[in-house]
C-alpha cells in the first residue's frame, strides 16, 4: 500500500520567486524508511512541510494512506492528516513536562488509554525515568527521543523527520543512528527522513531519494 503518494508537486515561497520544488512525484510504501538526501536549499525540508500541511503547494496533489490531503481544490488541515513530525530543533513545548509533551497528541484517544500509551512510548525510547523533567533539563539526544515518542504516540500513518542529527554532537551520531533504527523498526512505522548526510541514509534507511540540483547538472 502506498502510504504517501505525491504527484507533480510545485511549490515556491512567493508567486515571483523560483519554485523550490518543481514537479516532484514520488511514493512511499508501507513500513519503508526512506531517506531524502540533498544539499541545503534543495527543498527537502519544504517537502516534509508540504506533506504535513504546514505549507500549501501551488500545483500537484498529495495522498496520505490513500486519502487525498491536498489537491488544487482541497486542503486538509495539518491536525487532520494523521502525520507525525519530528522537527529539526524538536520543538518540545517548554512549559510542559516530558509526560505532558507526549500526552499532548493523544486527545483523540479515550482518557483511560492515554496514560498507558505514554508509558509505552517512554519505554520505547528508554526515557521512563525522565517523565517529570522539563525539556530544558534534558540533553540534546534525550530531547530528540522525547520528540520522537511524542510524534509516534498518536500512531500516525507516516513519520517525518527533519534533519534528525543536525543538533547532535558528531561523536554521538553513530550510536544514536543505531538507536533510531531500532526504535523505528520496533514501532513498525513508515518514515521519511530528510538529511544532508549520506551516512545517515546508509545506516538507517531502506532506500533513498536524492534531491537538489541533479537535473541541472545532467542538463
Amino acid at each position: 500500500m502506498k502510504i504517501v503518494d505525491i504527484q507533480n508537486l510545485v511549490f515556491s515561497f512567493s508567486s515571483t520567486s523560483e519554485p523550490v520544488i518543481n514537479g516532484v512525484s514520488l511514493s512511499i510504501m508501507k513500513d519503508e524508511i526512506v531517506g531524502i538526501l540533498g544539499p541545503s536549499g534543495s527543498g527537502k525540508s519544504t517537502l516534509l512541510r508540504l506533506i504535513a500541511g504546514l505549507e500549501m503547494p501551488w500545483q500537484g496533489s498529495i495522498h496520505v494512506a490513500e486519502k487525498p490531503v491536498v489537491s488544487e481544490k482541497l486542503f486538509i488541515q495539518p491536525e487532520d492528516r494523521g502525520v507525525g513530525m519530528v522537527f529539526q530543533d524538536y520543538a518540545l513545548f517548554p512549559h510542559m513536562t516530558v509526560n505532558e509533551n507526549i500526552m499532548f497528541g493523544l486527545s483523540r484517544l479515550p482518557r483511560k488509554e492515554r496514560k498507558p500509551r505514554v508509558m509505552e512510548m517512554l519505554e520505547l525510547v528508554k526515557m521512563e525515568e525522565f517523565s517529570e523533567r522539563y525539556p530544558h533539563e534534558l540533553s540534546g539526544g534525550q530531547q530528540q527521543r522525547v520528540s520522537l515518542a511524542r510524534a509516534l504516540a498518536p500512531k500516525p500513518n507516516v513519520l517525518l523527520m527533519d534533519e534528525p542529527f543536525s543538533n547532535l554532537d558528531a561523536d554521538l551520531k553513530a550510536e544514536i543512528r543505531e538507536d533510531l533504527r531500532v526504535i523505528l523498526k520496533k514501532a513498525n512505522i513508515t518514515c521519511i527522513i530528510v538529511t544532508h548526510d549520506r551516512q545517515d541514509v546508509e545506516s538507517i534507511c531502506d532506500r533513498s531519494i536524492v534531491f537538489g540540483q541533479r537535473e541541472e547538472v545532467m542538463n
Binding site: A52, G53, L54, Q77, P78, E79, D80, R81, V83, G84, M85, F87, A91, L92, F93, F104, G105, S107, R108, R150, A151, P154
Partner: peptide
C-alpha cells in the same frame, strides 16, 4: 506547528 501536526486545531 508542532501542536497542529499533533492533532490540535
Amino acid at each position: 506547528e508542532a501542536s497542529r501536526v499533533l492533532g490540535q486545531g
